[in-house]
Computed example of a mutant assay.
Amino acid sequence: MPELLTIGVFARAARLSPKALRLYDDLGLLRPAQVDDDSGYRLYAPEQLDQARLIAWLRRLGMPLERIRQIGELPTPEQAAQIGAYWEQVLAETAERGRLATFLVDYLSGRGSAMGTLGIRYAARSETGPVRDSNEDTAYAGPRLMAVADGMRGPGGDRASAAAVDALKTLETATVAADDLLGSLAEAVRAAARSVGEIDGDTATTLTALYWSGSRLALVHIGDTRAYRLRDGELSLITVDHTYVRSLVEQGRLTEAEAAVHPQRSLLVKALTGTGDETPDLSLHEAAAGDRYLLCSDGLATTVPEPELRAVLAGPGDPRQILDDLFTRAYAAGAHDNVAAVVADVVPA
């Protein structure tokens, strides 16, 4: 049997401090192989060095200890997938902070674009669909706020999606400057998460919402509800699904075609749960007259192909007529889930 290493020797080999090793023991991240009954000294086996080095590397990535603990319990291939998903999240959040920093620099230095005076015409719709017997989706559209939420299937899902959207509705009457859109929306989402957490039982919801002022839109997104923008005839998906399968696509481990039929394509890696661990995507967008926005749940997005979405959104009709067309197509394609959507047109005020 290999000789056990003292905590000092093991710490030097793993490039960790003895203090860190004691903390990891207390947290259950890395237990010593043996604790001396008389002295209380921690002793480690040489084969534990790989685990210790992995923890050290993940800490250098800035990964929270609780997430490291969860990854440590997984088989090696799943560890790789989870680390990849975490890093994609870090890159997305870093890019968003970069965009916010650019906006702040431009705004404070007077280089930002002037606030245009624009308005929106909108319509919202949420239906049970032809297959489900209950509706966990919520859709809302108002003069300044558009939102779609998809509650977890089962007891409490409908209340979770409704609670999340209701918490955002306070923004409709709030006095918020265009340069504070993102902060106000982020605070409202924290309130939404608390509302979801107050619901009895284990439930959660996705949430995608746009908050409007002048010519600027603040976007919040968590889960697999989606936001699209049609501009000059080109349809762009402006959210990224927070699903396990999407993380595999981003890592190059699945093609789009494989993802579309993957048995775990609906498995979420992020949602509003009320636990305080939520990290939604937040971003700022500049609107232009003629833009058309679509927010929708997966009951629409996974049923109507994107080229067909683009054709409908680019066609004639007001937002309510566009919704009628989209829902008709979703049902004709055999929508397997609830269907919720908001369509909003940007127009000169």
Results as ranks from 00 to 15, higher is better:
R67M: 14
L182W: 03
V343Y: 07
R31E: 02
E93Y: 09
E198H: 13
A101P: 08
R97Y: 07
A52Y: 12
R292N: 01
L326S: 14
D337R: 06
E3W: 00
R99A: 13
T203A: 01
T128I: 15
V9H: 06
A56S: 14
E250M: 11
S213R: 13
A332Q: 12
A301V: 04
S126G: 13
Q264V: 02
D180G: 13
D281S: 14
G110H: 10
S109F: 05
A209V: 09
C296A: 15
Q48C: 00
D337T: 09
E258N: 08
V176E: 00
A349Q: 13
T138N: 07
A45C: 01
N338P: 10
G317K: 06
Q264R: 10
A193W: 00
T275M: 05
D232R: 12
G112Q: 09
Y293W: 15
D26S: 12
L181M: 00
R42N: 02
T243W: 01
R53L: 10
V347D: 04
S283Q: 08
T239S: 07
G334W: 12
A204E: 05
A178T: 00
R310L: 12
G110A: 09
Q48N: 02
P143I: 04
V269G: 05
R229W: 02
L230E: 05
L27F: 10
V312R: 13
L284G: 11
Y122I: 03
P316S: 12
D158F: 04
S297M: 08
G201W: 07
G201E: 07
R159A: 13
H262M: 06
M146N: 01
I199M: 08
E278Q: 02
L282Y: 15
Q70K: 11
R111G: 09
D224V: 09
F327G: 02
S109I: 02
A340I: 11
R190K: 12
V196T: 03
F103R: 10
R31C: 03
G116P: 02
D324C: 03
I322L: 15
L108G: 06
D337V: 01
L207N: 09
L230F: 13
L54C: 03
S247A: 15
R253S: 14
E250G: 02
P32M: 00
L182F: 07
H262V: 11
E306W: 01
T170P: 03
A139G: 05
G201S: 03
D318W: 04
L185R: 12
Y107G: 03
A209R: 00
R31Y: 03
A340F: 09
W212T: 15
V346H: 12
E308W: 00
A191Q: 11
Q82K: 04
I71E: 10
L254E: 14
E234H: 12
D180E: 11
V165M: 03
H221L: 08
R125A: 06
I68E: 14
S17F: 00
V35H: 08
Q321L: 14
